[in-house]
């Protein structure tokens, strides 16, 4: 395995389209639920341990070699919001394009053929990690980090929050990111029935409201 491959994959400049998404932070800012760095930390922590853990485990499971189509179905069942399912598939499609150009693999080709409109992003990410020779825990780390870095970056723009403060929020979450990645990888080793389904009611509810806004800065 190559540690550098994980850096390439997790680099914010990796062309997978994540920068256009706030991970639910935009409606939270608009509704006054995120006003400062402390609120951002609480938001990121909540997202990490719910949607983040669930997505990280799906990615770890795909990297571990579980059936990607069964995982895609499991992801659907864990995503009641159609707006969030559409986002996950759109990001999955973008990730698939970047992945097939960087780490081509027959498994990625097969998933792209079976899900031409995009599979859930964590599943694609897991297969990408596998193609890059990374471990399932690496895939889980990537997803866990993406779960919090997306909202942090978005809140810098939405609130004009000091970028140093936003980065400090992420740094303080590092031990919890490690925990979540380890939990996700452990669940993946135990099989698809052991995958967590942790969910966040407000993220599901506000995703639908946000998708209906006529004007918004972020796609989700």
């Amino acid at each position: 395995m190559s540690r550098a491959a994980l850096l390439v994959l997790a680099d914010g400049r990796f062309p997978a389209g994540g920068h256009a998404h706030s991970g639910g932070a935009e409606p939270a800012v608009t509704q006054g639920r995120i006003r400062n760095a402390d609120d951002l930390a609480a938001f990121c922590r909540g997202r990490l341990h719910t949607a983040g853990l669930t997505a990280a485990a799906l990615a770890a499971a795909a990297a571990h070699g579980l059936d990607p189509l069964a995982l895609d179905e499991a992801a659907d069942a864990r995503t009641p919001s159609p707006a969030l399912r559409a986002t996950a598939r759109k990001l999955g499609r973008q990730m698939m394009r970047a992945a097939r150009a960087t780490w081509p693999s027959p498994e990625l080709d097969a998933l792209a053929t079976a899900r031409p409109r995009g599979a859930h992003q964590p599943v694609v990410l897991g297969l990408t990690a596998r193609a890059a020779g990374l471990k399932s825990e690496d895939a889980a780390h990537w997803v866990a980090y993406e779960t919090v870095s997306g909202p942090a970056t978005a809140v810098v723009r939405l609130l004009s929050l000091d970028p140093f403060h936003a980065t400090a929020v992420l740094a303080r979450l590092a031990p919890e990111l490690d925990d979540v990645a380890a939990q996700a990888a452990e669940a993946a080793r135990r099989g698809i029935d052991a995958l967590p389904a942790a969910s966040a009611p407000l993220l599901d509810i506000t995703a639908e409201a946000h998708a209906a806004w006529p004007v918004r800065l972020f796609a989700s």
Partner: peptide
């Protein structure tokens, strides 16, 4: 036999952090 819905919620003492925060319950 196919998954339709799977949801897990955790609140209160011992629950992972952020359960009462702006992403989960607000």
């Amino acid at each position: 036999g196919r998954p339709l819905l799977d949801q897990q919620l955790a609140y209160g003492p011992g629950a992972p952090g952020g359960w009462d925060g702006p992403a989960v319950l607000g």
